[in-house]
Structures are given as structure tokens and as C-alpha cells.
């Protein structure tokens, strides 16, 4: 029994080695093809190895699972049904099984490893690898691209999916022009008729906190030197997609504030 067990194990190992070799060649072709196409279309060729690895694993697992001694029988008809029967009855022993094993071992001596390798197929794959490798070198050296997908994706002008007018809250949008219009309705200090300052001098004492303020301490305007590397002005622009929902009376306040600043 040891002899037949060893013989069948050897056959299976040999078949597995052949499957591994063929799968490696196929994976190499796959990798080079993906790499080549990725370069042509400006994708990420450095990730082609991940796809090739997945391809290799899937193919080899699938192939090894379906690997059976029936493949040997297909090549050698004189072993037809015998090899499978010998394998299935490995755990049994009787006169007839011993005779079968003797017959199988005798016939296995004529089995050649080369009969399971399709030389034309292997040669074709090696040639394909050479050609693809050459193409990859040419494409990467001269930066040949049919269409750069990644650049196109970066420059894509994104238009918002949501409608801009959904966030329009004021009848009059707050713009620079509106703030300086001088409309009496939008006075910063409110209605003049209500507020009266009078003739009295008012001493204002502000509570001391982090800073102190003395309104009598007026100084001359000092010329200040600004750095050349000043921070760029931050330009605030009204935008149709501005999301604040300011009530109408408060919008007037903001507008009047800017009007007042401009007048000063």
C-alpha cells in the first residue's frame, strides 16, 4: 500500500507544480497587461500587482480544487478508471486490490511529466510576456498616454447637485452695493427721532477687562510700516450658496453697519 500511496502522491505533487508554473505565467501576463493599460490611460499602474495577486490566488485555488488523477487517465487511456479506483481504495486491502495496485504501478512507469506540459502554450506565454514587457518599457519611458483619466478627474468642474436657490433667504441679497445705498430704513443707529444724545458731556467709564480704553487719550496717527509679505486680503463675496438664514430686520442692521463704516 505504501508504494501506491507514494506513487499517487508524487503524481499529485507533479500536477500541482505544473499548475503553479502555468498560473505564474498567466499571472505575469495579467500583471503586465494591467500595468500597460493603466499607463496608457493614466491610471495607477503601481496597483496592478494587487489585481495580479488576486488573479493568481483565485486561479490557483480554483485549479487545485479541481485537480484530479482523472487528468492522468485522460492522457494515458491504459490507466483509465484504474488510477481512480486505486486512489479510492487506498484504505482497503484484499487480493484483488493488490492486483490492481501492481497493475497501476507497472503502468505508471510509462507516465512522463512532459506529457502534462503543453509546450506550445508555454512558449506562447513566454513570448507574450516578452512583448508586453517591451511595450511597458516603451510606454513608461516615453510617457505615452491615450487618455489621462486621472488628470481629467482632477480638472473636472464640479457642479453642485443641490440647487443654489434652495438657500436664498433674503429678498435683497446682502451685497457691498446694498450696504452703501444710504437708505433711511437701514440706518445703523436706528431712527434718529428716538435717539438723542443731548449737550451734556458724558463720562464713559468702561469696566476693566482684558484691555483698557481712555477716550481722551487721543494720539496722533502714527505711520506704521507693514511687512511686504502681508497677508492677502480675504475678499468676502456674497455667494448664492451662502447658507445663513438671517432674519430681515437683522440683515438691515448689517447693511447699515457697513454703510456707516464707509461714510466715516
Amino acid at each position: 500500500m505504501a508504494e501506491i500511496s507514494k506513487a499517487i502522491r508524487e503524481i499529485k505533487n507533479t500536477l500541482r507544480q505544473i499548475v503553479l508554473f502555468n498560473t505564474l505565467l498567466a499571472s505575469a501576463i495579467f500583471f503586465l497587461t494591467v500595468f500597460f493599460i493603466a499607463n496608457l490611460f493614466g491610471l495607477y499602474p503601481e496597483y496592478a500587482w494587487i489585481l495580479a495577486l488576486i488573479y493568481f490566488l483565485v486561479k490557483i485555488l480554483k485549479r487545485i480544487r479541481t485537480l484530479k488523477v482523472a487528468e492522468v487517465e485522460a492522457k494515458y487511456p491504459n490507466l483509465n478508471e484504474r488510477l481512480r479506483t486505486a486512489e479510492d481504495t487506498m484504505g482497503q486491502d484484499n487480493f484483488m486490490i493488490q492486483r490492481l495496485r501492481t497493475e497501476v504501478i507497472d503502468k505508471l512507469k510509462n507516465v512522463r511529466v512532459s506529457s502534462f506540459m503543453n509546450l506550445k502554450d508555454i512558449f506562447g506565454k513566454i513570448v507574450a510576456i516578452f512583448i508586453l514587457a517591451f511595450l511597458v518599457i516603451v510606454v513608461t519611458t516615453y510617457d505615452v498616454k491615450i487618455f489621462n483619466i486621472s488628470d481629467a478627474a482632477k480638472n473636472f468642474d464640479y457642479k453642485p447637485i443641490v440647487r443654489a436657490d434652495l438657500f436664498k433667504t433674503a429678498e435683497k441679497p446682502i451685497t457691498t452695493q446694498n450696504l452703501t445705498s444710504g437708505d433711511s430704513e437701514y440706518q445703523l443707529y436706528g431712527k434718529a427721532s428716538i435717539a438723542k444724545l443731548g449737550d451734556k458731556n458724558i463720562d464713559l467709564v468702561l469696566s476693566l477687562r482684558t484691555d483698557q480704553l481712555d477716550i481722551r487719550n487721543v494720539k496722533k496717527v502714527e505711520e506704521k510700516q507693514f511687512d511686504e509679505n502681508a497677508v492677502y486680503e480675504i475678499e468676502a463675496r456674497s455667494d448664492a450658496s451662502f447658507q445663513e438664514n438671517i432674519p430681515k430686520e437683522q440683515q438691515a442692521l448689517v447693511k447699515d453697519y457697513f454703510n456707516a463704516i464707509n461714510k466715516r
Partner: peptide, 12 residues
């Protein structure tokens, strides 16, 4: 006796 001992494969 031999007839009963003739082996048969699992797929058969």
C-alpha cells in the same frame, strides 16, 4: 470471493 473483492471507485 474474488468477485466481491473487485474494487470500485467512489464516482462509480
Amino acid at each position: 470471493e474474488y468477485a466481491r473483492q473487485v474494487p470500485i471507485s467512489n464516482d462509480l
